[in-house]
């Protein structure tokens, strides 16, 4: 039975669960402003904005940030092209082994990152491909494709096959149908998929660890910084940057697709 009012105990439990999930994030923000740089003591002895200036002047942050942005942008681009093409094939045609292939496409997001990372690392070694920015991009593209695919395939299914036929019936060439019917109807789903893919790539650690050479993406830099007891709040400042760079695209992606039935890519 559904009742409008939940019992108090359930409300308390739900509230506690939400606090447990989100309070640590607030603490991360708080420690970006603390005056104490060696340990995370609570409450902070004082508040300051100086760590933002320190972070800005740290030369080791900028290459990591640039690399993360470049990797996320490239992986997203690859994913948008390939993910859309796969989605088109899956939604529009029937062929032998279609369901099996569909499962294979979704597999990267179901596999633990460690497995993806290990398998890619061994594959790159076997093929004698040196670890570089390119290998990180390829690693990220494996799961970014799934995100774009998920968004695009749901939209393809929702587009009644009829409108593509209607366009051809009215005299449109294949390109005109793509330009005037398919793209406008697919646009927001692709944008949303791209945003989510970008966000996932930007904060990815596990696959990156396995596929990177000497390069440091921003999340890897943070991980290494945490074990060093020097200028700790700088890490928190960077954490805020990572938080914004991932949450904002996800929120935009969510708002673009919330009216539809798209699976907003979760899981990784």
């Amino acid at each position: 039975m559904h009742s409008d009012r939940a019992p108090l105990s359930l409300k308390v439990a739900a509230g506690a669960g939400l606090l447990f999930l989100h309070l640590p994030i607030l603490l991360i923000f708080l420690y970006a402003f603390t005056t104490e740089e060696r340990s995370y003591q609570f409450p902070p002895p004082g508040l300051t904005l100086k760590w933002f200036a320190v972070a800005w002047d740290r030369p080791d942050i900028w290459p990591a940030l640039r690399l993360s942005l470049a990797v996320a942008a490239l992986a997203t681009l690859i994913a948008m092209v390939l993910g859309t093409l796969v989605a088109a094939a899956m939604a529009q045609s029937r062929f032998f082994g279609r369901d099996q292939i569909s499962l294979l496409i979704l597999l990267p997001i179901a596999l633990p990152g460690v497995i993806t990372g290990m398998s890619l690392r061994s594959a790159f070694s076997v093929l004698d491909i040196p670890f570089s920015t390119l290998t990180i991009v390829l690693g990220h593209a494996t799961f970014c494709i799934v995100i774009v695919y998920n968004n695009a395939v749901a939209r393809f299914r929702r587009l009644s096959g009829g409108i593509l036929e209607a366009s051809a019936d009215l005299g449109a060439t294949g390109f005109q149908t793509f330009r005037h019917v398919l793209l406008p109807n697919l646009g927001s789903a692709l944008l949303a998929g791209g945003m989510l893919a970008f966000a996932l790539s930007f904060d990815e650690v596990i696959v990156t660890t396995f596929t990177a050479g000497q390069q440091q993406t921003l999340p890897i830099w943070m991980l290494e910084e945490l074990v060093r007891p020097r200028q700790r709040p700088v890490t928190n400042v960077v954490a805020i940057v990572v938080f914004l760079a991932t949450v904002i695209p996800i929120l935009i992606g969510y708002s673009l697709t919330r009216h539809g039935s798209e699976t907003a890519g979760a899981g990784k």
């Binding site: 009644s160 009829g162 409108i163 036929e165 209607a166 366009s167 051809a168 019936d169 009215l170 005299g171 449109a172 060439t173 005109q176 005037h180 019917v181 406008p184 109807n185």
Partner: peptide, 30 residues
């Protein structure tokens, strides 16, 4: 697209992103 035959589809298959006027004008637009 090269046959002088047009179809009224069962589910109408109107273009959801276009206004009614642009839907009707589509055949002339292409």
């Amino acid at each position: 697209n090269r046959r002088n035959v047009n179809t009224v589809f069962q589910d109408y298959a109107l273009f959801p992103h276009l206004s009614v006027r642009d839907n009707v004008a589509y055949g002339l637009m292409v």
